[in-house]
Simulated scan of single mutants.
Amino acid sequence: MRALLIVNPNATSTSPAGRDLLAHALASTLTLSVAHTTHRGHAAELAHHAGTDGTDLIIVHGGDGTVNEVVNGLLGPPSDAPLPHVPFAVVPGGSANVFARALGVAADPLVATNQLIDLLATRQRRRIGLGSCGDRWFTFNAGLGLDAAVCKRVEDHRERGVAATSGQYVRSAIRTFFTEKRSPARLTVALPGAEPIDGVHYSFVSNTSPWTYLDERPVHTNPGTSFDTGLGIFAMRTMGVIKSLRTARNMLAEGGDPTSPDLVRADDVDWIRITASEPMPLQLDGDYLGERDDVEFRSVPDALDVIAPAAE
């Protein structure tokens, strides 16, 4: 089996020695080529080429941003007719690795590599749904507003050499929350079969659950959402500190199932449209994409073949 290993050498939790070990292990069972990304968008270019040159498997060793690039390069824009594509696997290498963890992939890269070898030997794979937004795919999460502003803040810090740790995300989220708290509600959420809901301060769109992690602790916004369902929407109509803290506590609780009179939530919908009274930050899989005032998120079932454990 011909395989391409796409490596982001700048990913948070990768090292040259670790990359060599996992490449050696994979090469023992695969005809392996290794490509290191050198610039933004390079992973998408490599995946697009691999999808047309007879490669049988694409493996990504990097974080969620690299995974998103590869998925978009492999599949092409959602508006295009679906094309056959090679299976996809991920070996975690970033700071959060939400997509890999949601698939049941081990957090340790070497353990995940051995897990992948075992899955290939037993021919296990899954077909999962993805989310789309305009001309881009997302694998686990998107949002317009608060979470995208946090992603931008963290990206700005990374460009200045500050590591994207869980602590950095928490500090950025707190600062962004109290900055936005003084702003009026600017979002309106439209869902299938319902009247548009205005007065929304911030919203998260999920393609699986957990939505993200705080170190080892999962954060649940839409526990009824998975790779086998539609999208989840979590939208708050308050910035009150006490109410927000109660909701956050529910999100972090074991088996969290957040509810609130101020919360707009649905766990399995085909599409979500969010409009804003002025342009707001947009993010897909933690990647800041600029500002938008009208976005539509769609669920696309059975969009991607992945080498991963069977769904629980």
Rank of each mutant, 00 (worst) to 15 (best):
D20W: 05
S13Q: 12
T113D: 08
A248C: 15
H157P: 02
G62D: 14
V60K: 03
G167S: 12
G73H: 08
F140L: 05
F178Y: 12
G54R: 03
G104F: 04
S260K: 00
A100W: 03
E278V: 15
H48L: 03
E296D: 03
A266D: 14
A190T: 15
T38R: 04
I197C: 13
T139F: 02
L75A: 11
Q124L: 10
K181W: 15
I6P: 04
E278Y: 14
T37D: 03
V91H: 05
D305Y: 09
I59N: 00
E180H: 15
S28M: 13
S206G: 11
F178L: 10
T247M: 00
V70M: 13
I117L: 09
V264E: 02
I174Q: 13
V90I: 14
G18R: 06
T259C: 12
V300K: 11
W271R: 04
T139H: 02
F204W: 04
G286R: 08
L83W: 01
L30P: 01
L74D: 07
G167R: 14
V269N: 01
L304N: 08
N68R: 13
Y169A: 07
P84D: 06
M251L: 01
W211R: 02
A190E: 15
D147W: 07
G131K: 07
V86F: 02
D267M: 01
F138N: 10
L5R: 08
G199H: 11
Y288C: 09
T139S: 09
A303Y: 00
D135P: 03
D293Y: 07
V60N: 08
R171Y: 04
K243C: 01
V241C: 05
Q283K: 15
T29N: 09
V154C: 13
N10K: 10
F227D: 07
A50Y: 09
A148D: 00
E296T: 15
V300S: 12
E216D: 14
D287F: 11
D56P: 00
